[in-house]
Computed example of a mutant assay.
Amino acid sequence: MADTPKKGDGIQYDVGVDDLLIVFKTKKEDSTTDATYESQVYRLPNVKKMGVKGNGKAVEIHASSKLFAKVSQETQHELSLTHIGMPINIYDKMTGNTLKKGVAFAKSTPHEFPEFALGVIANRSDDVKDAIWYPSCSLDPATTMDYETAEEVFKENDGSLAITANGLRNSSILYSHFNSAREIVDGLTYETFIAQPVFSEAQLDTLTVPKA
């Protein structure tokens, strides 16, 4: 007798990318404490495409003339965001540039970019929601910009941002991923997952909705 299909056994196809989430850090994490974030979650309906490129690699360990283990590690994702536009106030917070009288000043001296959590929401088939949080991101230091002339017939000119996502300094968490079709969610909902950056297993207990 065939087993009854479980939730999550079905094939989910991609319906489309949804909104972008940005939350800025108020304090960076260190080796023993968690990062703290602003309460403001910027939810932007501006995403055209999000590309992800990791730096993962594997090292083979041999012992007794045999393959003993294959150890994999990934410490960073390069995120390429194509968007229809970015609010200037949010972009200024990402760059950390000095502002005065509506003018942003970018310096050539060494400096750190502000860090923020970045979330991406995707829609899957059968009303499945898929969301991911990168809790420690910053803009790529190599700026790229394109300015094009206006033409007689309107042509959409998309913007782009290069963002680097790193593992947290205290836990090495690179990202957290929620999918509403998973068999075990224990009361955690899509709405509670996207309400704030999710960066630790212990944090999940505070996000779970108590069972009646």
Rank of each mutant, 00 (worst) to 15 (best):
M1H: 02
K6T: 12
K7T: 15
D14K: 12
V23H: 02
K27P: 04
E29W: 04
T32V: 06
T33Y: 04
T36H: 00
Y37E: 02
Y37G: 05
E38W: 01
S39I: 05
S39C: 06
Y42C: 09
R43L: 01
L44Q: 09
G51H: 11
V52C: 10
K57G: 15
S64K: 11
S65L: 13
L67A: 01
L67D: 00
V71S: 00
S72W: 05
E74D: 08
H77W: 10
E78D: 06
L79H: 07
S80P: 03
G85T: 02
G85N: 01
G85Q: 01
G85S: 00
I88H: 15
N89A: 04
N89R: 09
T95K: 10
N97V: 08
N97D: 11
N97T: 03
T98L: 03
L99V: 10
K101A: 10
A104T: 05
F105D: 01
F105I: 00
A106M: 14
K107F: 11
S108L: 02
T109N: 14
F116Y: 07
F116W: 14
V120P: 03
I121W: 00
R124L: 09
R124Y: 12
S125D: 06
A131L: 10
S136Y: 13
C137F: 09
T144V: 13
M145Q: 08
D146G: 15
Y147N: 14
E148H: 14
E148W: 07
A150M: 08
A150C: 12
E152W: 05
D158R: 09
D158A: 10
G159Q: 14
G159P: 05
S160F: 04
S160R: 11
L161S: 14
L161R: 15
A165S: 02
N166S: 03
G167Q: 04
R169M: 11
N170S: 10
N170V: 08
F178T: 12
R182Y: 07
D186H: 07
G187C: 00
E191G: 12
T192H: 04
T192C: 00
A195F: 09
V198I: 08
S200W: 08
L207S: 02
T208I: 15
